[in-house]
Design a protein around this nucleic acid. Structure first.
Lengths: 375, 375
DNA sequence: ATGTGGGCAAACAGCCGACAA
DNA sequence: TTGTCGGCTGTTTGCCCACAT
């Protein structure tokens, strides 16, 4: 949490700056009012784990599925006005929408797309005008007012592997809506999360947290393999060059280059020797305050080839076992590695019944899963 | 909190079931989206206090100001439809609105009223039709859609002491909107409030809580004098008859009669010997589940004349000193009683700059203050 | 006394191509 | 290629009263 050090917030001296946890359960939610997405995770701190745990986490990291095709458009004043419909970029319409029957005059069809709540929205898709262009007309204004969209917000159309259309929104970064809470002070909240984690760590009992990537983009749950790789794979030094990924406006990614300018504790009083954002960095291209000036080791890719100062403890085999086969084998592996998980080992999204694996980048996984929520 | 006993929630054995606190600060809020009202309080546990503290708390209890005139109407289908305006009950219009000039044909005027966010709403008030009636026409539908009102919700018009019109809404009890939180689990929240209180109690440091009377009507902050009076003034016994106040639909109050049927702990495991709802009661008139079957001693008025089993410890003088004069004298008294408060002793509402005193019934105080938020 | 509905005029929603960036 | 606009038409909004409860 971004929180000024406050004398009134208790310390938890027995709470380390990081906890190794099992991911027991993850549930994806979308706020019914705003479509804001967030994840609910049940974590259980563990004190011991087998090397299979690491391998499985790494395995899951590599499970990136082929991205579905999609397009994302930022809405114009015309798109959101009541005067007309939605102007579909030509390439987008041709890539995502079903092909039109051009023998019709004008070519037109009905399009249906499903949102995160499984609501189906129906639009008239027509190709007309001079010059010709793709438009969504009837049904569009209902969508705009229903989702309370304004110019600057974005819509995302996705075509999944079954040719189903999925529909999402991404609101512009307006002033923080500040609805944070009418029942809980941020102090209590801060204390509560720490107290819950401390209690769970002391008892190896599960606790539940929420992750909202739009409200606070910081990932505070790191895949185990990703963390290990960063810690044991990267030799850090002042002046080292690195790259780091950022998400672009249109849901793509872009790498920016930077230099490590300092290695020191973010909060030497409360979280001494924490690896959380202990790297001070400068960026090659940056307007003031555009990018964070502190990052964590697992967020960056060193540009110089990494070398090992000591053998990484969990890579007993030179080449970690590669598994490209079916999930049943992964299930068996998981069960051997963490038998206390029982049958809860397969994490099911209650909406989609998709089986997923712990260890993915959470944002990556959420994106994937959101896009498949109609399956 | 209404919370099932959960093995994963830590106990706070050093946290007593009640804390004597100083009220450092109280801020009233209204949710910008929903107009839901709530209070934010900073409390500081104290271990000792002078008798002046009790006297001041009692004094504040007696500070009930004369209620401003108001009316409250539950909206009909016609009131909320786009087909027309708002039909003002005759008596309400004559009591609250400025008098019309009946020489006009038809009599009409512009009315302005201010909501909790200091937004001003303008309506055309006209007296017409056959038979004649008071109507709000132009401007009304903007208000209905702006506040997202539906048939069954209520509007409240208040005329304050400066003849200014204030305007509030009170939504019907629909299904709980369940927007509770997208960033915090209820477990963490529960733990957090307890942890914050426990830490504050151990260190005599302040902590902050929120009180939302619509979401959870239970008052969990009790004026000190009210509590003392109840504990030392009422001799309880099984079968004792009592009265208790409830708020009616139209913002009035009504007393219901009941009988004490049991005296025992609500939660003997976690909060042993707590006085919180330790009275089991039955009601003279009650549909099933209409009224709570557990109440606390400070909520009821015994019907039999109270008698003292021992002299109440803080009423050294037979007749507590009565102060009807200016707040400067109260300030001095407070400063002598609780010098550690420093200059924070005068609680100011940042909106109204009204000086208020600790010890009032919170709901009472909120009602008073909300009605003055335009001053 | 006041909730609902028909009549009516004005405002708005929403589909179209023209035009320009 | 696509954002915005004027033209046009069908629907909705919103003020009035009548009528019923």
């Amino acid at each position: 949490m971004q929180k000024d050090v406050d004398a009134h917030v208790p310390n938890y001296p027995n709470l380390p700056s990081k906890l190794i946890c099992l991911l027991h359960n993850i549930t994806l939610h979308a706020d019914l009012e705003t479509d804001e997405v967030y994840a609910q995770m049940t974590l259980q701190p563990v004190t011991s784990y087998g090397k299979e745990a690491l391998q499985l986490s790494e395995l899951a990291l590599k499970q990136a599925r082929p991205q579905n095709e999609f397009f994302c458009k930022t809405l114009t004043a015309s798109d959101t006005s009541t005067h007309g419909g939605f102007s579909v970029p030509r390439r987008a319409a041709e890539k995502i929408f079903p092909p039109l029957d051009f023998s019709m005059q004008p070519p037109a069809q009905e399009i249906q797309a499903r949102d995160l709540h499984d609501n189906v929205w129906t639009f008239r898709h027509i190709y007309r005008g001079q010059p010709k262009r793709h438009l969504l007309t009837t049904g569009w204004s209902l969508f705009v007012s229903g989702k309370r969209l304004f110019a600057g917000d974005s819509v995302i159309f996705v075509r999944d592997e079954r040719q189903q259309l999925l529909l999402g929104i991404r609101r512009a970064n307006r002033q923080p809506t500040n609805i944070s809470s009418s029942v809980l002070s941020s102090d209590s909240m801060h204390i509560g999360i720490l107290a819950a984690a401390a209690h769970a760590a002391a008892n190896n009992s599960p606790f539940t947290i929420f992750y909202n990537p739009r409200a606070s983009p910081t990932e505070f749950v790191i895949p185990f393999a990703k963390y290990q790789k960063a810690v044991y794979g990267n030799q850090l030094s002042l002046g080292m060059r690195f790259r780091m990924m950022f998400e672009t406006e249109e849901l793509g990614t872009r790498r920016y280059m930077g230099t490590i300018t300092g290695i020191n504790d973010l909060d030497p009083v409360r979280w001494k020797n924490s690896q959380w954002r202990n790297l001070q960095v400068g960026w090659d291209e940056s307007a003031a305050g555009e990018r964070r000036n502190r990052v964590s080791i697992w967020e960056i890719e060193p540009v110089a080839a990494p070398f090992f100062i000591c053998p990484p403890p969990f890579f007993g085999a030179k080449r970690p076992r590669q598994l490209d086969d079916e999930s049943s084998e992964m299930e068996n592996l998981l069960k051997r590695a963490m038998p206390w998980l029982g049958e809860e080992i397969c994490i099911k999204d209650p909406q989609t019944q998709n089986t997923i694996m712990p260890g993915l980048s959470l944002v990556q996984w959420m994106n994937m899963n959101m896009q498949q929520s109609s399956s």
